[in-house]
């Protein structure tokens, strides 16, 4: 009872803040927490019932972890997990490095007009769908008409069947991912850098600090919390992959599967024939749980190092 009273008092004391969070909280409940019931499908053998979805859910049989088996009882389980994690690690850290580097670079340019043009240019890839991008990549890598093979033959080098040669693809995929994402990721860092109080730099300049020293001792430390938090959040998505990148850009070429098969690809290719809702849901649940665990661990470690950098 006392606990209840205290809680009431606390709630009242925080009423202003609760009002602040109320609109988005209602949104979260309606659009995120209510639909989470759907995860139950992963543990059921989903059958349709004439009284609608909830009746279907209710009447479907529990099957425990049976729907998860296909993710583990396959001889490529290791391969797809490895590919997904390795690509994501590269995407996260290279993406972080490039986004920060470009943001700092742009903030340093003297000509602000040019800066704007560059920035706008870098954002363009974000607008093109992977389908359109795959057309474009094909014009470079096509075996008989591709620009690169034409160039190679000009130098007397034999043409390469790009879509049959797995060794090149880790690089191509990383390049494409960076190409598409860096302009977008950079925006956050740019905004953060622009928001840094100018007086820090003025003080540093008076002390005779070089540009490089200013970056190292002012810019980077100031945006480190942001870098940390974005990275922690990205780690939560480490079991997901950008399906369009791996499916469209590679033209879903089977010869490349050793290096392009990720969890999402496997689930897509494996379940189109079966059309099994429950197995799809199981894959999603698995990805979420692993991501969740990783984030909790990362956050715990970060918190040990410096409380300020932690997410929660």
């Amino acid at each position: 009872m006392k606990w209840f009273k205290n809680t009431l008092r606390d709630l009242y004391a925080n009423r202003i803040w609760l009002m602040f969070v109320l609109p988005a909280t209602i949104w979260f409940i309606i659009f995120s927490y209510l639909p989470m019931i759907g995860h139950v499908i992963a543990f059921k053998d989903f059958r349709i019932h004439r009284d609608g979805f909830f009746a279907s859910l209710w009447h479907s049989e529990w099957v425990g972890f049976k729907n998860f088996e296909f993710l583990f009882k396959t001889n490529v389980a290791w391969e797809i997990t490895r590919n997904t994690i390795l690509y994501n690690l590269v995407f996260i850290f290279l993406g972080l490095f490039l986004a920060v580097a470009f943001a700092i670079g742009l903030s340093l340019l003297a000509n602000k007009k040019l800066t704007k043009i560059y920035q706008t240019g870098m954002l363009f890839p974000h607008f093109l769908s992977w389908v359109v991008v795959s057309y474009f990549v094909m014009t470079f890598l096509s075996t008989d008409r591709g620009a690169i093979n034409s160039l190679l033959s000009f130098f007397g080098v034999e043409a390469i069947s790009w879509y049959y040669e797995p060794i090149y693809w880790p690089f191509i995929l990383v390049f494409m991912a960076m190409w598409k994402g860096v302009g977008y990721q950079m925006i956050v860092y740019l905004a953060a850098i622009v928001g840094i109080d100018r007086s820090y730099y003025e003080a540093a300049m008076i002390d005779g600090a070089s540009k490089w020293q200013q970056i190292r001792h002012i810019t980077i430390p100031m945006i480190t919390p942001l870098m940390m938090i974005l990275t922690i959040m990205n780690i939560g998505r480490i079991f997901y992959s950008d399906f369009g990148l791996f499916y469209q850009v590679t033209q879903n070429s089977g010869a490349l599967y050793d290096v392009t098969n990720t969890i999402d690809m496997y689930v897509y290719n494996g379940l189109t024939t079966l059309g099994d809702m429950s197995m799809t849901a199981a894959a999603g649940f698995y990805q979420s749980v692993v991501g969740f665990a990783l984030v909790i661990i990362t956050n715990y470690v970060v918190k040990k190092v410096d409380e300020d950098y932690a997410l929660f």
Binding site: F28, F31, S32, Y33, I37, M233, G236, F292, F312
Partner: peptide, 20 residues
Amino acid sequence: TFLAFFTMLFGGGLVPTYIV
């Protein structure tokens, strides 16, 4: 913070959202 963050990892499925 956690309430918000949690939704990043456990999205509601397509069908439940559709029903909502």
